[in-house]
């Protein structure tokens, strides 16, 4: 299977998806490098794989229980997190309205 190069149109879509606004010079560099990287990824498509091939073998032996039960725990000082937001008020993070003032909630 031959991997297709990323077209300028497809590139624009992913730039938009990643929320970037790029200069022409940046675009040219990034598109060229992405296509070079894809050339490397192409090698993976040429490897014969069986359907049953297992995925990654990251192996974390455990003795006894998990480090803790999978339950959320409140951070000791939540205000310490909120206060790091660029804009906040009364313990809430402030954000601008979405485009057109639509309520997305």
């Amino acid at each position: 299977m031959q991997l297709e190069k990323i077209s300028p149109e497809a590139f624009e879509k992913i730039v938009d998806m990643a929320a970037f606004a790029l200069e022409a010079e940046e675009k040219a560099y990034l598109l060229e490098e992405l296509n070079h990287q894809l050339q490397s990824v192409q090698e993976l498509l040429d490897i014969p794989l069986e359907e049953s091939s297992s995925s990654s073998l990251i192996n974390i032996p455990r003795v006894g229980d998990m480090p803790r039960r999978d339950e959320w725990q409140a951070f000791d000082v939540p205000r310490g997190i909120i206060e790091r937001a660029p804009q906040h008020e009364d313990g809430m993070i402030l954000v601008p309205e979405p485009a057109g003032g639509k309520d997305l909630s």
């Binding site: 990323i6 497809a10 590139f11 992913i14 730039v15 998806m17 990643a18 929320a19 970037f20 606004a21 790029l22 940046e26 560099y29 990034l30 490098e33 992405l34 990287q37 954000v95 601008p96 309205e97 979405p98 485009a99 057109g100």
Partner: peptide, 29 residues
């Protein structure tokens, strides 16, 4: 920022350097 999308786009465009942008775009693609 004019609106939320403008905040995201300008923040990420100005905040990230070229190499993080490259990695994000490859991951997104």
């Amino acid at each position: 920022a004019r609106d939320l999308q403008d905040l995201y786009t300008r923040t990420r465009t100005e905040g990230f350097g070229l190499q993080p942008k490259l990695r994000i775009l490859m991951g997104a693609y």
